[in-house]
Measured scan of single mutants.
Amino acid sequence: GKMTGIVKWFNADKGFAFITPDDGSKDVFVHFSAIQNDGYKSLDEGQKVSFTIESGAKGPAAGNVTSL
């Protein structure tokens, strides 16, 4: 299901971020390909987002990341 959280930090050079979920679970890795914005895919620290949890090769990662 959809979860919500806050972007903890975003590394534009490497194209990934971490989200701190609102439910208090541990921070979730985000690859820029999961960001659903049109055009430039970036996130801002402190931004509120919704996302799903996908199981990636290196463990859980956020999918369908959308700005709220």
Rank of each mutant, 00 (worst) to 15 (best):
1 G>I: 13
1 G>W: 06
2 K>Y: 10
2 K>E: 07
2 K>L: 13
2 K>I: 12
3 M>D: 02
3 M>S: 05
4 T>K: 03
4 T>I: 05
4 T>N: 04
5 G>S: 02
5 G>P: 00
5 G>M: 01
6 I>K: 06
6 I>T: 13
7 V>F: 03
7 V>P: 00
7 V>A: 00
8 K>N: 05
8 K>S: 04
10 F>I: 15
10 F>Y: 11
10 F>M: 11
11 N>V: 04
11 N>Y: 06
11 N>Q: 05
12 A>F: 09
12 A>K: 11
12 A>S: 11
13 D>R: 05
13 D>S: 08
13 D>E: 14
13 D>C: 15
14 K>F: 11
14 K>T: 11
15 G>H: 06
15 G>W: 04
15 G>A: 06
15 G>C: 14
15 G>M: 10
16 F>D: 01
16 F>P: 00
16 F>Y: 13
17 A>E: 00
17 A>W: 04
17 A>Q: 00
17 A>K: 00
18 F>A: 09
19 I>E: 00
20 T>E: 05
20 T>H: 06
20 T>A: 09
20 T>D: 01
20 T>I: 08
21 P>D: 01
21 P>I: 06
22 D>G: 03
22 D>K: 02
23 D>Q: 03
23 D>P: 00
23 D>L: 02
23 D>R: 02
24 G>D: 02
24 G>E: 02
24 G>T: 02
24 G>P: 01
24 G>Q: 03
25 S>D: 04
25 S>M: 03
25 S>I: 02
25 S>Q: 04
26 K>Y: 07
26 K>H: 08
26 K>T: 10
26 K>F: 07
26 K>C: 15
27 D>K: 02
27 D>R: 02
27 D>H: 04
27 D>I: 05
28 V>N: 00
28 V>K: 04
28 V>C: 11
28 V>F: 06
29 F>V: 11
29 F>E: 07
29 F>L: 14
30 V>W: 15
30 V>Q: 00
30 V>F: 14
30 V>Y: 05
31 H>D: 14
31 H>I: 06
32 F>D: 02
32 F>I: 14
32 F>Y: 11
32 F>L: 13
33 S>H: 09
33 S>D: 11
34 A>D: 13
35 I>Y: 03
35 I>D: 04
35 I>A: 02
35 I>F: 14
35 I>W: 15
36 Q>R: 05
36 Q>Y: 09
36 Q>N: 11
37 N>F: 11
37 N>E: 09
38 D>Y: 08
38 D>C: 14
38 D>A: 13
38 D>L: 11
38 D>F: 12
39 G>D: 09
39 G>R: 04
40 Y>P: 07
40 Y>L: 14
40 Y>A: 10
40 Y>C: 15
40 Y>I: 12
41 K>S: 11
42 S>Y: 12
42 S>K: 10
42 S>N: 13
43 L>Y: 05
43 L>T: 02
44 D>A: 13
45 E>G: 06
45 E>A: 12
45 E>K: 12
45 E>D: 05
46 G>W: 03
46 G>K: 03
47 Q>E: 06
47 Q>G: 04
47 Q>N: 05
48 K>T: 07
49 V>I: 06
50 S>C: 14
50 S>A: 10
51 F>G: 00
51 F>I: 03
51 F>C: 02
52 T>R: 06
53 I>G: 04
54 E>N: 07
54 E>G: 08
54 E>S: 08
54 E>H: 07
55 S>V: 10
55 S>W: 11
56 G>I: 10
56 G>S: 10
56 G>Y: 09
56 G>V: 12
57 A>F: 07
57 A>I: 10
57 A>M: 09
57 A>V: 13
57 A>R: 08
59 G>R: 07
59 G>P: 09
60 P>R: 09
60 P>N: 09
61 A>P: 09
61 A>L: 09
61 A>K: 10
62 A>D: 13
62 A>H: 09
62 A>E: 11
62 A>M: 09
63 G>D: 13
63 G>A: 14
65 V>Y: 01
65 V>W: 01
66 T>G: 15
66 T>M: 02
66 T>L: 02
67 S>V: 04
68 L>K: 15
68 L>A: 15
